[in-house]
Amino acid sequence: MAKFDAEARAGLSLIAPPFLYALLILAAPILTILAYSFLTDGYLEILRDFTWVNYAQVFTDPIVRTVMLRSLMVAAIVTLATVLTAFPIAYYVSFMVRPEKKAMWLFLITIPFWTSYLIRVFLWKVILGYNGVVNSSLTGLGIIDEPLTFILYNINAIVITLAHAYAPFAILPIFVALEKIDRSLLEAGRDLGESRAMTFWRVTLPLAMPGVIAATLIVFIPTIGDYVTPEVIGGGKIPMIANLIQVQMLALDNRPLGSALAVTAMVVVALVSLLFLFLNRRFLKVRQ
């Protein structure tokens, strides 16, 4: 018994500094927001009256609903697009690239992620814009007469930009899951008379699912709260939930409502993620 306690004590005293830091800088503020969301907004100060008004407003305001649905939709499309396009890359690196070259491929894939996010977002605006790289090249080559407008400053542009930004977050977990697959399982599948396609469908894909699920969550959760892309690409005209929170908190100085929005956003994200995990529990069990 004594040994277990000694080890637990050593572990707890080691984990204490980072844990206390996270409590102070993360948990305390989030709890404060939670408290604020139940308070009443006065003109110059926040009144300490408990109220559900902020949440009532969050759930009835058509603007909030539009923005929330848009955020969910954008995040869902981005996630789908990112994971679907990332899977073949992860598969390629894991199964086709020679082992000694894998690290180099991963390095190549992650480099863009480490370069200035703002500048990357802005460059997508340049690439996709009215007189941007795509349109000026296509008109210059005489393929189109008028600049394409469906890629302009709209949700499509936001989706492309975010899909680009979160690509490595989707590739790496899937790659890790694929790497863990025992190659002899695939040979066994083939040996038992399955075609290459059926082996992929019945062996590879189910075993890769935990990676796909992780990738989905890792892309979905941050994209729903993205602030920069709607601001830079959409020019503030197609706000997502993060922009709305910022406007309420700062521009309109309604912190209780802003807090209620933030809390609602977190709850929605958590619920969607849990629902997703619940739907995929079959695949997650495979690993155990």
Binding site: I25, L26, A28, P29, I30, T32, I33, Y36, L217, I218, I221, P222, I224, G225, D226, Y227, A242, I245, Q246, M249, R255, G258, S259, A262, A265, M266, V269
Partner: peptide, 15 residues
């Protein structure tokens, strides 16, 4: 790592 930064930034700012 996964929490949207806007949440971290806003809540910290409010506090």
């Amino acid at each position: 790592m996964v929490l949207p930064e806007i949440i971290v930034a806003m809540s910290l700012l409010v506090v």
